[in-house]
Design a protein around this nucleic acid. Structure first.
Length: 259
DNA sequence: GCGACAG
DNA sequence: ATCTTGTCGC
């Protein structure tokens, strides 16, 4: 079987993956969406977890992508990768994988520790076409990916309890809010994710299956990865890594301009 | 037609 | 996402 780096390179090199027009991008999502697989994820068997994130500069001309691998047990950082790049697709809600995946794949190529699971800052199945960035990445590199977002895109839900670990289901296409698992199953409702309280009395995060994981295992792992703060540690690390890189780069440019 | 709209 | 300091609360 090929390595993750090889699969990332192959995905980047295929022009079919990177349409220029939104309409083509939607068609691409519809084509790839049925490749998504939900499989059991045992959080106890996970050793390395990679957090992924992208930060932007001014004027829509520059961005930085980071991949940070943590030991899932100790939450220690064991590997990092950082890449500077240029946006090649506009930000459009529902299509933002086409903007962020190219730099993210490049950052993944720079890793030397192979992650067992990836965590994306965004959605997987909790998406209008069931193909958010977490599912998209998972299908492109055929790896386990979990989506963990900071706000809602798709699906209805009631607010979870205020205590850490409390959650409610995110349900597609319903008019009334029902949280009971049996009732939802009996009605054949489509559960696309879970709203999870990772920290008491703090805004929850939105967890959904990306690829080759299941929802319960994903929520369990995300909770373990967030022992202190709202945002899971792998994403927090990736966030501050590409964020500070962009800041330094901006300052450096400012100084050069003055001379 | 109206409202919503990941980062 | 980004522009931005201090400040209220556990």
């Amino acid at each position: 079987m090929s390595s993750i780096e090889e699969r990332a390179a192959k995905a980047l090199d295929d022009p079919e993956n990177w349409p220029a027009e939104p309409k083509e991008a939607v068609a691409r999502q519809r084509l790839l969406a049925d490749r998504v697989r939900t499989e059991p994820l045992d959080p106890d068997s996970v050793r390395y977890v990679a957090g992924l994130d992208v930060s932007y500069g001014v004027g829509d001309t520059e961005l930085a992508a980071a991949a940070v691998v943590l030991d899932a047990r100790t939450l220690e950082v064991v590997d990092t990768s950082l890449v500077a790049d240029t946006p090649s697709f506009p930000y459009i809600s529902g299509l933002f994988a086409f903007r962020e995946l190219p730099p993210v794949l490049k950052a993944i190529q720079g890793l030397s520790v192979a992650p067992d699971v990836f965590v994306c800052d965004g959605f997987g199945l909790a998406h209008p076409r069931r193909f958010g960035i977490a599912s998209h990445l998972g299908v492109l590199i055929d790896a386990p990916v979990i989506g963990s977002a900071k706000s809602v895109l798709y699906g209805r839900n009631s607010p979870p309890g205020e205590e850490r670990g409390s959650w409610t289901p995110m349900v597609a296409g319903r008019s009334e809010l029902v949280d009971d698992t049996e009732t939802l199953a009996a009605e054949g409702a489509e559960v696309v994710g879970r709203v999870l309280r990772t920290r008491a009395r703090t805004k929850p995060v939105y967890v959904s299956v990306g690829h080759r994981v299941d929802l319960a295992g994903s929520v369990d792992l995300i909770l373990r990865l967030s022992p202190k703060y709202r945002i899971p540690e792998p994403i927090r690390h990736a966030d501050r890594l590409c964020g500070q890189y962009r800041k330094e780069h901006k300052e450096q440019q400012g100084h050069e301009t003055k001379n």
